[in-house]
Amino acid sequence: MSKTLAPREAFGKALVQLGAENEDILVLDADCSKATMTSLFQKEFPHRFFNLGIAEADLVGTGAGLALAGKTPFVNAYANFLTGRAWDQIRISVCYANLNVKVIGHNSGTSPGQEGPTHLPLEDITLMRALPRMTVIEPADGVEMAKAVRALGEHEGPAYLRVGRMPTPIVNREAGRFVIGKANVYLEGKDASILACGVMLSKALEAAEELKAEGISVDVINVHTIKPLDSSCILEAASRTGAVVTAEEHTVIGGLGGAVAELLAQNLPVPVRMVGVQDRFGLSAKMPELHEALGLTRENIIKAVKEVISAKK
């Protein structure tokens, strides 16, 4: 069993570190600071932490005002409520006004588990990706989360970061570089390319191992930035292998799968399969059970790889 780390824990600690280095970093939360672990920042820098209560729209607007006055606010809430309920505020007060607000969507994907469908953010990437000027990031694990937080501290402009609650396998190397908008190639193969983000990267790597034993060689590429998409990396991979599988803990409609399909359909039409949530709500179950129920599995990635390989013949 590989080592695991909760992305939110890595996030909370990285935010404290960032706050120590840059006093313009402010943290706002909507009554979930213990779950988001922004409570760590609050403890360290109480005068730079603001709880806005259960009011996501006001949370985002207040962040916009702070950014307008030159601060760098990280606004935190559960991903579904933040991106869903406050979408219009993110659209107008943040993106249209082009303000340096970091929108942090917590409890992402299936990580709230037994809370049930209302609490499973499975559409947040789509909502954020549709907004002009928005950068969208989903780190693969806790190690990469820390790098992403650091990168966001230096990034100027609207950005969305997806943070999971439950511990997930660590696949990212401490020394590996993290550049917003630059995908990282973990494995290079010749038969197909697997593009993954978030917790699905670890499953893609497992799938690649199994496929290797069957004599199938695949790319595994960590697309941690869903927007702007690293189109040159993806087009290079697709032209080399001629077949693409995407894997995400999110609806494939407008998510990583949708983004990759948009790119390839217009530039390099090759067979594509999307592993992800297929236009449905979740259910109330533990995270591993949800992955099974929603088809977010290593087996489905393997199946998809075999399908795209046969489709290109």
Binding site: F50, V60, L68, Q89
Partner: peptide, 25 residues
């Protein structure tokens, strides 16, 4: 023009944000 607007209801939150920033500064 200090902020883009047109979707109603958003201005007071922004005012609070700059007011908090002024207090910090």
């Amino acid at each position: 023009v200090d902020i883009s607007s047109g979707s109603l209801g958003q201005g007071l939150s922004i005012a609070n944000g700059v007011a908090l920033a002024a207090r910090l500064k």
